[in-house]
Structures are given as structure tokens and as C-alpha cells.
Amino acid sequence: MPSLSRDDVAHLAMLARIELTDAELDRMLGELSVILDAVAVVQQAPTEGIEPMSHPLPLVNVTRPDEVRPGLTAAQALSGAPEADQQRFSVPRILTDD
């Protein structure tokens, strides 16, 4: 199996939006390599022709009647927001300046 590089871990951390410190990256590299070695045994299982199972219950498209029910008020929905403005979530900029 392919071995993990420090750059790989940094890339994964970027994808997961976690700004790891250098020390964390070093530590994570060692730990992930050990864990990946251990979990790679799934590749030795006799899975020829076996259907993947994503869920314990064989459910497809569970629906319920489309009925109007009370939901959260705007104030309730915003009650845990780090920042709110004009009854909306206030977020940092999402576009670049240039």
C-alpha cells in the first residue's frame, strides 16, 4: 500500500479545513501510517462478488406527508450564531477582493 508523506497529510488537512501546526503534522503522519497499516487488512477479506453495505436497514427514499409544522423562529435559529446581523447569520467574506 502507498505510504503517506508529510505533504499528503498537509493536503488532507487542507481538504478537511483544519489548520494543523507543524508539530501536529509530524505527529499525525506517524499515527496515520500506523492506523492505515492496521485497517488495510480489509483488503485481505474474501469480498469477491460481495455487495457493499452502506447501512443496516434496506431503506430507500423514506418520505412523510408534506404537512406544515412549527419550526424554529429566526431568533431561535440565530441563538447560537457567532455573529448575526439583520436576522441573518453574519459570516466572513466568501469572495476574494481581486
Binding site: L4, D8, A13, A16, I18, E19, L20, R27, L36
Partner: peptide, 19 residues
């Protein structure tokens, strides 16, 4: 925020899952 707010085990599993 995720760097400051998550502990080591949570970061480990998120990155493992991402992989």
C-alpha cells in the same frame, strides 16, 4: 476554528476519513 476547537483524536479521525 477547527484547529482550535477540535482535539487530537477528532482531527485524527477526520483526516483519516478524508483519506
Amino acid at each position: 476554528t477547527r484547529e482550535a476547537g477540535f482535539g487530537a483524536e477528532v482531527k485524527r479521525r477526520i483526516i483519516l476519513g478524508t483519506y
